[in-house]
């Protein structure tokens, strides 16, 4: 690896200040994506601002009809949380589908969402549940947050501090994992708030995570049965040698059904 320095921030302000001062800094959360990228030389920041020691960025709390999860909360903590299990068990089930136990002990919710990696799981839940991203300086609605492949509304120096998930009446996630990497080739998160259905799809979108509006409308109008046999051929999906778009479209279809079956 290149030489770089690590600054272990103890406050959010300190983290942001260090990031701004350096000019070639990156934020470090669990490091499960960034560290391998740095090992390969494909990322070479001069300074890593480590967020893990900042108090208050880690933890899960139920606040009324909302579940607040600190951005530095690890996947294993989401899996183990009683609050998650009672409020939005689908988030725990989703966390359990991320990579493997060892990675989940390090990887964080915020890291996954801040990257907007098209193949990571949590953006599907964030979008479908209409979560709010709480940063060091503002609140961003999910609808405004994901702006394209690996791109978010976060400013370069902005730090994701917490995510607030509205608690749905029901939710579920189904995933088709890449056989080698374990990343989502397609992942479908469904959530129901009263009569309102919301479906988030990760892994396959050309622009990253997206809402499957066809399915949402069908569910609204005809309930679960109506979501069968949707024509998903028109979706603009990632298309590569390993996973052609047609397969992804079909997978989204059966994952939607599998997710609905869990409700």
């Amino acid at each position: 690896m290149n030489t770089f320095d690590i600054f272990r921030a103890s406050t959010l302000d300190g983290a942001v200040a260090a990031f701004r001062d350096h000019g070639d800094a990156m934020y470090l959360s669990g490091g499960m994506t960034l560290v391998p990228s740095m090992k390969s030389g494909l990322a070479a920041p001069g300074l890593l601002v480590d967020l893990s020691a900042i108090k208050g960025l880690r933890g899960i709390a139920r606040e009324g009809n909302m579940l607040r999860i600190g951005a530095l909360t690890r996947f294993s903590e989401i899996i183990a949380s009683a609050d998650v299990a009672t409020a939005i068990p689908a988030l725990g089930a989703m966390a359990a589908k991320v990579a493997d136990r060892h990675v989940r002990n390090r990887g964080t919710l915020g890291g996954s969402v801040a990257n907007n990696d098209p193949a990571s799981d949590f953006p599907a839940a964030v979008l479908a549940l209409g979560a709010t991203m709480v940063t060091d300086r503002r609140r961003i609605a999910a609808a405004d947050y994901f702006t394209g492949l690996f791109e978010t509304a976060l400013e370069a120096d902005e730090v994701l501090a917490a995510l607030e998930f509205p608690i749905p009446d029901a939710a579920a996630y189904a995933k088709h994992a890449h056989p080698a990497s374990g990343y989502a080739v397609a992942g479908v998160f469904v959530a129901r708030f009263g009569d309102d259905w919301r479906v988030g799809v990760t892994g396959s979108g050309e622009e990253g995570v997206f809402r499957l509006t066809q399915a949402e409308q069908a569910l609204q109008q005809g309930g679960i049965k109506a979501a069968e046999g949707l024509n998903l051929g028109e979706l603009e999906l990632l298309d590569d040698a390993t996973f052609p778009a047609a397969f992804r479209a079909a997978a989204i279809g059966w994952l939607l059904r599998d997710a609905l079956a869990q409700l």
């Binding site: 890449h178 056989p179 080698a180 990497s181 990343y183 040698a241 390993t242």
Partner: peptide
């Protein structure tokens, strides 16, 4: 790939 580039260059792709 058709240019002779190895596209299964890590255990992320080679399973």
């Amino acid at each position: 790939d058709e240019d002779g580039q190895l596209t299964s260059g890590s255990f992320m792709d080679y399973g």
